[in-house]
Design a protein around this nucleic acid. Structure first.
Lengths: 177, 177
DNA sequence: CGGTCATGTCCGTTATAACGCACAAAGCGT
DNA sequence: ACGCTTTGTGCGTTATAACGGACATGACCG
């Protein structure tokens, strides 16, 4: 089983380069990788070294993952009922070790969460409105688009200090081992 | 000009391997990369090829990004050729076995995702607009508020058939072997 | 103290990534 | 047409990634 036909990982170099409107020569200039090599990489005739990939990333001022097809991934969607306060998006799954919720916090409301087990990590992503999170003594304010990850084995609270509802994503990770 | 001291990208191989409690020989067995080469990579004496990195990722059933330390430390938002925007909310964490993105799909755009490793589960939550997900042959439409979980070890695509941008959350789970 | 096994590193050879330069094809003036 | 430029690809050489097998070290056990 082990070696799959290998489906050699393809590099998004050609797409990125043409997006930037650069020639091979120009790309060689800014990346420090030879023109010939760039061509071979684009045609899949060569499997670049990590240092070469690094040069490309630096030259284009992009993260390395921008060139890797298999690194970042994709999405889809489905229909669900609406307007809920505390909605379970994905129930706990022992194999995956996580569960996630969509939480709506009404204006002025505060929610106190008791500490979870040691090692548990919690993710917050604010999709709408503004939310304040208390960790230890300090409250921190987060607005739509903010993403926070923190250790959940400590007391923490949420509150919505605004006049509008706050909507956020909450994912709990229960680490393996 | 600029060859910056280069800050040669470091590979997290040793950490991942010891985490899994494997010897070099065992690792060579499951990845198909020779023991000697694994040692050199771990000591930074060799810059692995993309195919080699790929073998490592396959062998450990991990995404490629799990091995790249400096990959996520560059820009936060990436522009893909096809007008799809990936913003990394939480980079891959081997302990938690997950990574998550915020994805914007422009009107009329389609994005094709290659199958991931067996057992990989993908979560989608639509926060804004409408998008369609293809699993196998069938397209399904999802609107804001919809949540989907599906096996990512199959080809899948998403598209935005509307006139407005679609915004959704994407979380990848890499289950323990 | 020897064996035996496991670990990781060193060494010689082969495969191939990366280079520089030269070339063929396509574009642009004049 | 003709040069001149710019595109990308081909070719020979060099650098190095990758391999298999031998080696040194330490752990465990008689």
């Amino acid at each position: 089983m082990q070696n799959e036909p290998a489906e050699m990982p393809k590099i998004a170099l050609r797409a990125i380069r043409s997006e930037a409107g650069l020639s091979l020569a120009q790309t060689a200039e800014i990346t420090g990788v030879s023109k010939a090599m760039l061509g071979q990489i684009e045609r899949g005739e060569s499997s670049p070294t990590l240092v070469t990939l690094w040069k490309l990333a630096k030259g284009f001022h992009l993260p390395l993952t921008a060139f890797l097809e298999g690194a970042a991934t994709t999405p889809p969607a489905v229909n669900f009922p609406e307007s809920i306060r505390f909605r379970t998006l994905f129930a706990f799954d022992p194999t995956l070790g996580s569960e996630s919720f969509l939480i709506t916090l009404a204006p002025g409301q505060t929610h106190i969460s008791h500490p979870h087990d040691a090692g548990v990590v919690e993710d917050i992503f604010v999709t709408e409105g503004t939310l304040e999170l208390q960790l230890g003594e300090t409250w921190t304010r987060y607005s739509a688009g903010a993403a926070v990850r923190f250790a959940a084995d400590q007391p923490h609270s949420y509150r919505n200090p605004t006049e509008n509802p706050a909507l956020f994503h909450n994912t709990m990770h229960y680490p393996r081992i």
